[in-house]
Amino acid sequence: MLLGAGMLAGAMNAVAGGGTFVALPVLMLAGLPPTMANASSTVALFPGTVASGWAYRRDIQPLAGVSSAILLGLSVTGGLVGALFLLFTPEKAFGTLIPWLLLLATVTLAAGPRANTLLRNVGLRFGGRSIYFAQFLLGIYGGYFGGAVGLMMLAVWGLATTADLRQLTPLRTVMVAAANGAAVLCFAATGLVSWAETSIVMIGGILGGYVGARLSRRLPANVLRGVILFITVVTTAVFFARAY
C-alpha cells in the first residue's frame, strides 16, 4: 500500500502536483499521527523534487526585476519557519486543519495556469517587495504543508511578469525544493519522521516520478488533470467527513 501510494504520488507530482493528497492519507492509514504523517510525506516526496530541480538546472530563468538568490533565501527561511510551526502544532489541531489545507490545494490545482489570470482580473499587481513577502509566506506554507505550493508560486509570480509561466517552471521547482529541503532537515533532526514507512513511500515516489514523466508525454493533458483533480476532490471530501 505504501509503495503504491508513493508511485501514484510521484507520478502526480511529475505531471501537475498533488502527490501530498495520496501520500499523507496513506501514511495516516498506516498508523502515523497527522503531524508525523505530514512530515514523513514531505521527506518521502523530497528526492523527486530534487531530481526535477537538478534536471532543470540549465533551464532556470530569473524572474524579471527579482533576485533569484533572495527568493532562494526566503524559500529556505520560510520552509524552516513552517516546519517549526508544524512541530508546535497539537495533533488534534492539525487534524482539524488538514481538510482546509487540502481544500486550498485543491482549489489551486483546479485553477491551474489560470490562477494568475484570475488574480489579475481582481486587480492584484505585485512588485519586487510584494513578491519577496509572498515568497516568504509560500515558503512557510511549503514547510508546514506544501500541497500545490509550486502552482501557488507560479500564480503569484504571474502578477509580476508577463513571461510564459512554463519558462518559470525550472525556477519554481528549485524554490519548492529549497523550502522542502529546509523542512526535511528540521523534521529529520527532531525525530518527526517515521523512517520505515517513509523509505517505502520514497522508493515508490522515485519510480512513480519516472513513469509519470513518460505518461505526461503520451496521455492528453486534460485526461491527466482530470484524474488528479478527481483524486484531490475525493481525498478532501473524505478528510472533511472525518473531521466534521
Results as ranks from 00 to 15, higher is better:
118 L>V: 14
204 G>A: 12
43 V>P: 05
80 L>M: 13
229 L>M: 14
177 A>E: 02
96 T>A: 14
222 N>L: 12
220 P>W: 12
124 L>S: 08
66 V>M: 04
119 L>N: 09
227 V>T: 06
7 M>P: 02
48 G>M: 04
229 L>D: 11
128 G>I: 11
97 L>C: 11
142 G>K: 01
140 I>T: 05
51 A>P: 03
84 L>T: 13
93 A>L: 15
112 G>L: 09
121 N>M: 13
60 I>G: 02
126 F>G: 05
230 F>V: 10
220 P>F: 12
4 G>Y: 07
75 S>Y: 05
2 L>H: 03
215 L>K: 07
40 S>L: 08
154 L>H: 08
237 A>E: 06
62 P>H: 03
62 P>Q: 06
33 P>N: 13
106 T>C: 10
58 R>S: 15
51 A>I: 15
29 L>M: 12
199 S>E: 10
158 G>L: 09
228 I>R: 07
186 C>E: 09
187 F>H: 04
120 R>M: 07
84 L>H: 12
2 L>F: 03
52 S>G: 15
124 L>G: 03
13 N>H: 10
179 A>V: 04
209 G>D: 13
65 G>I: 11
210 Y>E: 07
238 V>D: 10
123 G>Q: 09
137 L>T: 09
62 P>S: 04
143 G>I: 09
16 A>G: 11
192 L>Q: 15
111 A>S: 14
104 L>H: 00
11 A>D: 04
163 A>C: 02
48 G>T: 06
238 V>A: 04
46 F>G: 08
29 L>F: 08
239 F>S: 05
230 F>L: 15
193 V>W: 10
192 L>R: 11
177 A>T: 01
188 A>I: 13
133 F>P: 00
133 F>S: 14
88 F>M: 09
89 T>W: 07
169 T>E: 05
225 R>T: 09
8 L>S: 02
173 T>E: 01
175 M>E: 11
120 R>S: 13
131 I>F: 05
59 D>W: 03
141 Y>W: 09
4 G>C: 11
162 T>K: 10
65 G>P: 11
131 I>T: 15
89 T>G: 11
111 A>R: 09
132 Y>D: 06
87 L>W: 11
197 E>Q: 15
39 A>Y: 04
156 V>P: 00
79 G>W: 06
92 K>A: 13
50 V>M: 03
